[in-house]
Design a protein around this nucleic acid. Structure first.
Lengths: 226, 226
DNA sequence: TACTGATCGATACACTGTATCGTTAGCGGC
DNA sequence: GCCGCTAACGATACAGTGTATCGATCAGTA
């Protein structure tokens, strides 16, 4: 039986100090502060003042804890707006924003099927807002937008971490594309790529995300208005 | 200094039994067989008949080994075709295919910036094939396609694993969307989503991937031919 | 009050990535 | 031909992981 429908254990006679929400909050707190690899059952349990094995009454293992974390993060995501395009754009932007506030989310996105209540509620909201569209188009369209967002956000966060690791700010990093790329391009092994990277205008992360999203939405528009 | 440009240690007088290629091949072999979590430095070293610490002469840590694995997988990816659209489609399809042959690749895609020689060579091939396009459009376009592929492939592999875990075949899984979803929809909490999922035609994975990719390519076409 | 069954958490196990450091082996200079 | 040096090697160790096990503990019932 999956976490989502398995009830929490009944309250102990003494009002329980522990529940899933508290556990997930503690885990998210750790992940927000020090990244996903800082989340261990021991650290979560310690933060709650209990032994590690206590957690196994509430979750079946670490994977389920991560699933619960993702679902909790999705609780903040609710697309708004009027018309399918505004809603899909809002879906993408709010998801991206959640990943910016919780970078660990990027590590988890797309890693396992998400079937938690908040994810489903988000799905419900999206589908409801897309009611003008042919029923057979709704899932492919929403799936495509989600796929783009997952990939784009992961790349973005990965790049941001790499920048942070070098200690360079975004400007200097983008301008030189990192000393390594400079040296590599100097070898002449990637001539076309080198000129494009050097000559083309460089967009910031926001812009890059939006331009790709616009490509996708334009393609969707052409399809559904046909 | 990054792996990509740091030379391997000089050959020992006795012809070295070990080199990065052999290490990476062993790691990929393990990952292909039993998934990414089966890749540990100890297991890789054991497979090569050496102690774990030997590997540290060739790589700085596990993360670098994973980077090398990804780069090796990208060596198989080379888009073909004539015209930007055929090339971008081929880029997407071959990347997807690589992830189907090496499911662990889906776990790694988008996780860290990939700057290895084979990844760059793939980039070079793509950019070279896109030479009709405005230089300022090339990177956004290629980036958008990559983002879509990463997200779509991750979702796809995640779903496939979930199916495998339940022991259901794809047909039965899709038809019922899993007993859990059936029960959840029966609660009436997600009425619109439930009807869409139940009533809409269900596409297989290939179809779903292609339809989203077509949305994106159509949007790109509208942009660059403007 | 005595018993039973659920709940708890300490301990233990197998495993991880990697730092340390004494040992070893090959080579250049005498 | 031999010595001394240096670089490579790998055994050991450490801190940490997820989780199985199982004796101790406690509440509610007879």
């Amino acid at each position: 039986m999956l976490v989502w429908e398995r009830p929490e254990p009944p309250n102990r006679p003494v009002p329980a100090l522990l529940n899933r929400e508290r556990i997930v909050r503690a885990a998210i707190h750790l992940a927000d502060a020090d990244g996903l690899e800082a989340v261990s059952l021991r650290k979560v349990a310690t933060a709650l003042g209990v032994g590690p094995m206590r957690l196994y009454s509430y979750i079946a293992g670490k994977e389920e804890l991560l699933d619960l974390m993702v679902d909790a993060a999705y609780a903040e995501i609710r697309p708004v707006g009027h018309g399918w395009r505004e809603v899909l754009r809002s879906l993408a932007e709010t998801t991206r924003q959640a990943a910016h506030e919780h970078e660990w989310l990027a590590d988890l996105l797309g890693g396992r099927p998400q079937l938690g209540p908040h994810v489903l509620a988000r799905g419900e909201a999206v589908v409801a807002a897309l009611d003008g569209i042919d029923v057979d188009d709704i899932l492919p369209v929403a799936t495509a937008v989600d796929a783009y967002v997952i990939g784009a956000v992961r790349r973005e966060i990965a790049e941001r971490r790499a920048e942070r690791a070098t200690g360079m700010d975004e400007k200097r990093w983008q301008a030189s594309l990192g000393p390594y790329l400079e040296r590599t391009f100097a070898t002449g092994r990637f001539p076309v790529l080198a000129t494009v990277v050097r000559d083309a205008a460089h967009l910031d992360a926001d812009h890059t995300f939006r331009i790709g999203l616009d490509f996708l939405l334009d393609g969707i528009e052409a399809h559904i208005s046909r």
